[in-house]
Write a protein that binds this DNA or RNA. Structure first.
Lengths: 244, 244
DNA sequence: CGGCGCCTTGAGAGTAATCAACGATAGTGG
DNA sequence: CCACTATCGTTGATTACTCTCAAGGCGCCG
């Protein structure tokens, strides 16, 4: 039962499992008191022990790990509709930190309340499990990116992936979406230096593949980008095939 | 209740949650009819739809993704005691393939039977969930490896990780364990060419860090290796902190 | 206006890839 | 028992992708 909504959490989960009006209402209620978080703020620090679930309603954040050398590796992005650490098993301390990239609107929910919601709303639980599986598959895809794609291919792949995810929550249209990442973020995601990120982006613009104005990304030639990156959205659009 | 056993599955899960004698018996029973699989055989192919859970009792295998160019990226290793796709949500088709590296002894169990076991043995389920979380954390650690470590550091980190995992199932002693990987496998894991893997290994031997004879890896100076790799075993040795 | 954050550019260095042989080892069949 | 073959490891030479260092530009905000 699709219900029109501008709540990205509901929008995302509806894409993963059928939600009843009651499911939707519960999700609306639990996200009704989000709070604004500034850009570049750590929501969860490594070894943090507070025990909340964060639901992103607006904005942009990332999970990252930091080396003693200071080098930082971003290991995933959190977009509107994403739930940070859905699983009962995802207890702190985490092995990584979570940090906003843009000003974000985030609902912070005691884990217990979230788990209760999952117990009372099995379809939400099912969608959450699927979301978690997609996250794992995405991480593996990033491994392929880092392990065996050139800088250009990696960048193309990342942009295709982000655009697809943004579309799924209604934030992208016509290959265009807001993207608050700075070049250093891209470098920390793809294992490239800032300088090289800059040059690769220039190359992509020169090739007529993308356009970045302000904090907006536009994919000018998605077929060519997808081919270049060997991108297929399959891993992001899993559907429940049956219930176990 | 620790029970002496040479079943690596039991050994591993006992390290993650307390198992009763009944739990152990059930695990013994379900792994009582393993079959031998040759080295370099695909157990699960990408887009495979058969629905089994594989439990590795002996041997060595990997999950990998293959690019159209033929390039292959190994995304994780499966060691004795590992259960392939423990979760009810891990339904096929997978986004990757699973392939043995050495001749392996593998129990193939219909998913339904495995899920029933989990339902009847909550401690086993708890341990499995923890195992899955560890797998996810390991994948993120690999991302850090590929994204921001040099070839030498990566190799050191991988060796520390494998040694720790082998120890956990009683297959390593005194920094020595069997390692059936060939140099090409290491390359496909770390995103390096065969030639470079070879040179890095030589460098590590020259530095007195490791010794590889036959299919055996020996870490000669673990403190230095761990320091070089910034390795901490924390992410591999999670303990249940409480039950949710 | 000054400072700061971010982007851009240039030059030089270095790590790792590629190409091409060659060597070692083990299993196979005559 | 010994060629024979295949797989894996090793080496050298060359190329190229990416990094580092350094400096300058541009726009925004106090």
């Amino acid at each position: 039962m699709e219900v029109a909504t501008d709540n990205p959490l509901i929008q995302k989960l509806q894409g993963l499992a059928p939600l009843s009006a009651l499911d939707v209402a519960a999700l609306k209620k639990i996200t009704s008191q989000p709070r604004l978080v500034q850009a570049r703020m750590d929501l969860i620090e490594e070894d943090d022990v507070s025990d909340n679930v964060f639901i992103f309603l607006e904005g942009f954040a990332c999970r990252y790990k930091q080396r003693r050398t200071g080098a930082r590796q971003i290991v995933s992005y959190l977009l509107p509709g994403d739930v940070c650490d859905v699983d009962p098993i995802d207890l702190p301390p985490l092995d990584h930190a979570v940090c906003t990239i843009a000003t974000s609107n985030v609902a912070r929910i005691p884990r217990r309340a979230w788990i209760e919601l999952l117990q009372e709303h099995p379809h939400v639980a099912q969608a959450s499990r699927l979301a978690k599986r997609i996250e794992a598959e995405t991480t593996r895809m990033w491994l392929v990116n880092l392990g065996c794609r050139s800088a250009l291919e990696q960048m193309a792949h990342l942009f295709c992936e982000l655009m697809t995810r943004m579309e799924a929550v209604g934030l992208a249209r016509d290959g265009t979406c807001p993207l608050p990442l700075i070049q250093a973020d891209l470098g920390q995601t793809l294992g490239l230096s800032n300088v090289h990120v800059n040059r690769v982006l220039q190359e992509m613009r020169r090739l007529g593949l993308i356009e970045c104005k302000g904090k907006t990304l536009r994919l000018l030639d998605q077929p060519r980008l997808r081919h270049l990156a060997e991108f297929s959205a399959d891993y992001l659009q899993l559907r429940p095939r049956r219930t176990v």
